[in-house]
Write a protein that binds this DNA or RNA. Sequence first.
DNA 1: CTGAAAGCGCTAACAA
DNA 2: TTGTTAGCGCTTTCAG
Lengths: 339, 339
Amino acid sequence: MASPRRTTLHDVAQEVGVSAKTVSRVLNGDGPTSEATRAKVMAAVDKLGFQPNLMARNMRVGGPDSTVGLIIPDMGNPFFGTVAGGIESAVRERGLTLLMGSSADDPDRERALITTFLGRRVSALMVVPAAAADHGHLRAARTAGMPVVFLDRPGTGLTADSVVSSNRDGTREGTTHLITGGHRRIAFIGDRPATLYTRRERLAGYREALETAHLPYDRSLVLDGHTEAEAAEAVLRVLHSPHPPTAILAANNFAAMGTVRGMVRAGRRDIALVSFDDLPFAEVLEPAITTVAQDPAAIGTAAAEIALARLDGDRTRARTVTVPTRLIPRGSGELPPSA
Amino acid sequence: MASPRRTTLHDVAQEVGVSAKTVSRVLNGDGPTSEATRAKVMAAVDKLGFQPNLMARNMRVGGPDSTVGLIIPDMGNPFFGTVAGGIESAVRERGLTLLMGSSADDPDRERALITTFLGRRVSALMVVPAAAADHGHLRAARTAGMPVVFLDRPGTGLTADSVVSSNRDGTREGTTHLITGGHRRIAFIGDRPATLYTRRERLAGYREALETAHLPYDRSLVLDGHTEAEAAEAVLRVLHSPHPPTAILAANNFAAMGTVRGMVRAGRRDIALVSFDDLPFAEVLEPAITTVAQDPAAIGTAAAEIALARLDGDRTRARTVTVPTRLIPRGSGELPPSA
DNA sequence: CTGAAAGCGCTAACAA
DNA sequence: TTGTTAGCGCTTTCAG
């Protein structure tokens, strides 16, 4: 590992025969510089392949590092990936780069990542909170001027900005869509644990729709499934129960995929389905799946905008931005009750 | 923005009444320290909520920053997201964090990201090369001891380590699977432009399978489609042509989804299909889609292992690691030719 | 076991 | 228009 020392500002200065500060001025377009030296400096920079050390720069300037820390549960999940992409495109213009880590929804890993990010002096911190995590420990950092934004779910133990989907309204709209189609027995299948924020909100929207329509809330129609397989089994069971539903509201896409499989296995293509969160294959299935689409990229950009405003001095109260969902009728939600 | 100054090593030292170096020693378990001071220091650290500034540390130590730079075309794509997750889990134990950016397959954006990452002195650079990018400019960085690993596709203009899927073997296997099932007219539908590395390799695998089976290579059966819609139309056209295929090999998942839609619109459920790259919905469709599954997480970990080995002094020649694909027969590939 | 001085690469503040 | 000095927060080197 006898890697040659990287060329520094001083090397360039020496090459040209000026002071380091002059090179710095040229590179940052800072103070006044003569055309002559400017040209010579640029030539030397090119010749030596000099690349300024951003760590050193950030440190001297004293401000935060030019990164945004982002913690999501799972990088392979396109929902979170798209959120990340939204953030990136919004902060890129400001010269900020994404420092990313995945928590696997594990509070300890989340905490470790946060510690690392704070140590790196990120400009802002964006977190999709792990299920059982507490965020009180972030208070100091926020007081020190570092914006904290929670994504997808509000954080716990700390009042901070957050950006979420309109889970409740979206699910209500989806459920109402089924009711309007004539359904009176509609099952809800959601994630576990039942205390999960998104699960709670979506269930609440489902119940609101039932109430508005004066339909009874039947607990035997509320199903759980943390994996696709579990969801499929739960659906299979309820379809074989004495009083099966004629429609199903799947509260996330694992549940939706499991529901489709369960229906296929039960040989019931006549059950209506609305899925919360859009799926790449929703249009390909037959019938195509009616979905309540979220807008993950918008969640990302909204979060980035809040963080940037905070960095620009916005000191108003913490707010929660709700990104609207959109019902996309495609066919599966339009099946009439057949039971 | 009157954010209070963050507490530093000196603040802690002053609080305890020792020198900064002593605090440093305690925190890094470096030199010898007495139990007494150790305890006092830890107490002060806790009380003041001190978090060492990693930028300063990295700078002083002189080594690279404790980050790995990763550039992918699209964060919302679960394939690349999963690759990223694989990298992260492999480098986390070494205390490295992921610095991520998306190029949108645009050489200029890729270049800008690389410049930023080099400026940050990342420990290693991992790049899914943008289609038309040249990477000769990375030679200097690599000479300076920074590992460069290309993912999914080899880089251009620079001999460096790379990790790719077994595109050719996988496609050959998938095609052979269809041939074994009795098909003699098999269409290939892939990405554009046709010069794309993965497209070329996969087409080559398809042709190899045909040759081995002494089947003619018919250009009219080679289709393009950069989007799902384009793929669907191409499939529709070929199915209505004078000599339609009885099976289709879709070389990526956009093509596969488009193919499914095209078949549905044509009312042809009797066309066999094998798709390169697994799809979340492959199992849900009817018939379930036979796929040649890639292993994106393994691609990520393999890349990380190469980079870490290089950091540990591995100076052997640049190598290309091929991560095997796996044929998953599910039904769509088992349909017999019916034409 | 602990401390003092020097310096990583860069820029702020002043001076020339 | 340019240079000098000092110092960001930390660790290395060398003395105690």
